[in-house]
Nucleic acid binder design. Structure first.
Length: 594
RNA sequence: GCGCCCGUAGCUCAGUUGGAUAGAGUGUCGGCCUCCGAAGCCGAAGGUCGUGGGUUCAAGUCCCGCCGGGCGCGCCA
């Protein structure tokens, strides 16, 4: 409809030009948008306001002339000039009603488009380290990333969903050492657990499993394990420093000690046990959450292939790497970063940053037209250095789009649920899903703008009332299903073609409102997809549900007049279809009964 | 201190990429079931869009300065 109006206006402008008006005026893109206020019609164009200055005439006057020159269209009932010079378009009832036919014809395809032209886009999201179960913060990234991917797919992009598994880094070694230490405890050794070790309960479970599989074959004395290590930094429960030391050196020393005492074979065994168990758990967790990936990309394969070293070499070749204090630095300040960054530590280990550059370079080389990363907002400082490195390597950093997602804060009984990663005391995604259900979790996570902090009200998410937007929307869907059941109980039958033939009977104002909301759906999907803003769709679905509930409350669907009944049934079915399509993109179920 | 994000109704948030008289939900108050699901609907009240300038036909939206909040500023990830 928008493009139709733009075409009409364009015709009018060209007509005016051939008449000699608007001589020498360059025609801009023609603005057409939906009116916010019904009294301003359905669509409005501010073209006269935009052109007034260059055309050197009054906007109102210009609007009149454009309106007069508009070709007739059977979809337009009335054109008005209003305000400072807006051209308002009022659609015919027939143009409203046509959307019902369109929805019924297209079914699940309604709202989908080919806008993206099949361009390949990669969306990488969650990518949490496999050092423990996903927590509620990761959940938001999962719901958001999955929905962005769904939306892009819906508007015609070829989407590749990927999880980057950090299975090679230092953190994984710390996990392995943590499991080993818990295992030693399990076998009766006692010592102070390192402050930088992983303290979660799951580490003890992994240790118990190691014992179940291998008995005491991996035991050494605590004295041996901790002999001559750099002093750990110790705090009391309130976080006050008790004994000064170097946490990092201590834990690195422990990792090294584990390798030596266990031997390569046994060390590998623990490492793999931890990695595989946790990554399987994460995969199951996400699958249950309706989040499925095309590829789980292993950092280790990147390293084994030599891609990390090759990337460092390439940066060296372009002169952006230097050595200082025994470490290798990337000159990211040359690309707008605040300071240069280390790629290879003094001890020879490459950093997370180094493999991340290699990974992103690899993404580009795989030929995606666009690459999207979903990160926690606390990583925002990381963006300039990754983009900088890509630029240094001759790539266009604009092809990488980093979407930042703020934390979700849980509230229960009106109070903030405290969480701290350090003590291993956090709410897992799985716990959240079990508490509020997958549907509420998926919806709540994306109902706010991603860069906005999310207050996640657990009580609201669980409540089965109109306060809860998920139930409110699902209820509208279930209501239509219920009407269909009633239809049979009342001995009516449904005649869809008859309903289509009598859409003109849908003249009530509530029907008109509902029709307009339905017609907006494809525009909403498009905007939500292109702006990477799932909340727009969530917001819209609430509005649609409201339009339906209002209508339903005011008018009966199952009236005795066959033609009217069938027309209203078609309208209801169209509503159900759009709710279903929208919820499907959000990863939320559309129940037939509740 | 520097960088990024955020300040809109009591609370939680939208605001169609700069459009006309700033909107929802919730909370408060008041109405609506002999009728397809009241898990619903309607109404009232509630605002200096943090603040001061600037840009233009038009600013909640763009630019600059303040005020307030969050995050980041490791040879951690």
């Amino acid at each position: 409809m928008k493009t139709h109006l733009q075409t009409l206006i364009n015709h009018a402008l060209q007509h005016l030009q051939t008449e000699g008006a608007l001589a020498g005026v360059e025609l801009p893109a023609i603005p057409v948008e939906r009116s916010r206020d019904r009294t301003h019609g359905d669509f409005a164009s501010s073209i006269a306001l935009v052109l007034a200055k260059t055309a050197r005439c009054k906007p109102l006057n210009l609007a009149e002339r454009i309106a007069a020159a508009l070709p007739v269209s059977e979809r337009i009932a009335k054109i008005e000039i209003a305000g400072p010079g807006f051209i308002n378009f009022f659609l015919t009832a027939d143009a409203y009603q046509a959307v019902v036919r369109e929805i019924l014809d297209q079914g699940e395809a309604f709202g989908r488009s080919t806008l993206g032209g099949g361009q390949r886009v990669q969306v990488e999201f969650v990518s949490a380290n496999p050092t423990g179960p996903l927590h509620v913060g990761h959940g938001r990234g999962a719901a958001f990333g999955a929905t962005v991917a769904n939306l892009l797919e819906a508007v015609g992009y070829q989407v590749h969903r990927e999880y980057y598994v950090n299975d090679a880094g230092r953190q994984m070694n710390i996990l392995a050492a943590s499991i080993w230490l818990r295992y030693l405890e399990h076998c009766g050794e006692s010592f102070r657990f390192p402050s930088n070790g992983y303290r979660g309960e799951y580490v003890r479970e992994l240790a118990a499993r190691l014992y179940a599989e291998q008995g005491s074959a991996y035991v050494t004395s605590a004295a041996q394990a901790f002999q001559d290590l750099p002093q750990d930094e110790i705090h009391d429960e309130d976080g006050n420093l008790i004994t000064p030391g170097d946490q990092e050196a201590h834990i690195d020393g422990l990792v090294e000690r584990a390798r030596v005492l266990l031997g390569d074979h046994h060390y590998r065994y623990i490492f793999e046990l931890g990695l595989n168990t946790i990554i399987d758990d994460i995969r199951d967790d996400l699958r249950e959450f309706g989040v499925v990936y095309d590829h789980w990309y292993s950092e280790r394969t990147l390293e084994e292939r030599g891609a990390v070293n090759k990337t460092i070499q390439r940066l060296r070749d372009v002169g952006q790497v230097y050595e200082r204090e025994g470490a290798l630095w990337f000159r990211s300040t040359a690309f707008g970063d605040e300071k240069d960054r280390v790629m290879q530590r003094e001890n020879g280990q490459t950093t997370y940053f180094a493999s991340d550059i290699a990974y992103h370079l690899e993404k580009f080389e795989r030929g995606f037209d666009g690459v999207i990363d979903v990160w926690g907002a606390d990583h925002h400082g990381y963006v300039p250095r990754v983009k900088g490195a890509l630029q240094a390597l001759g790539e266009n950093p604009a092809r990488l789009d980093v979407l930042l997602v703020q934390f979700a804060i849980l509230y229960r009984n009106g109070e903030r649920v405290q969480m701290s990663t350090r003590s291993g005391d956090f709410v897992t995604l799985r716990e959240l899903r079990h508490e509020v259900g997958n549907d509420a979790a998926r919806f709540f996570y994306v109902m706010r703008k991603s860069e906005q902090h999310l207050d996640f009200d657990l009580d609201l998410a669980k409540s089965q009332s109109r306060d809860n937007p998920v139930y409110y929307i699902q209820y509208a869907h279930a209501r239509v299903c219920s009407v269909l059941r009633q239809l049979q109980e009342k001995g009516f039958s449904r005649d869809e073609p008859r309903g289509r033939d009598h859409l003109a009977l849908l003249t009530e104002s509530h029907e008109e409102t509902l029709l307009i909301v339905l017609a907006r759906y494809p525009e909403v999907v498009e905007a939500a997809a292109l702006n990477h803003e799932p909340h727009q769709l969530a917001q819209y679905l609430r509005e649609l549900a409201n339009a339906f509930h209002t209508y339903y409350n005011e008018h009966r669907v199952l009236v005795s007049d066959d033609a009217l009944r069938d027309a209203r049934l078609n309208l209801s079915l169209a509503t159900r279809q759009v709710i279903r399509n929208g919820l499907n993109l959000l990863g939320v179920s559309a129940p037939e009964a509740m």
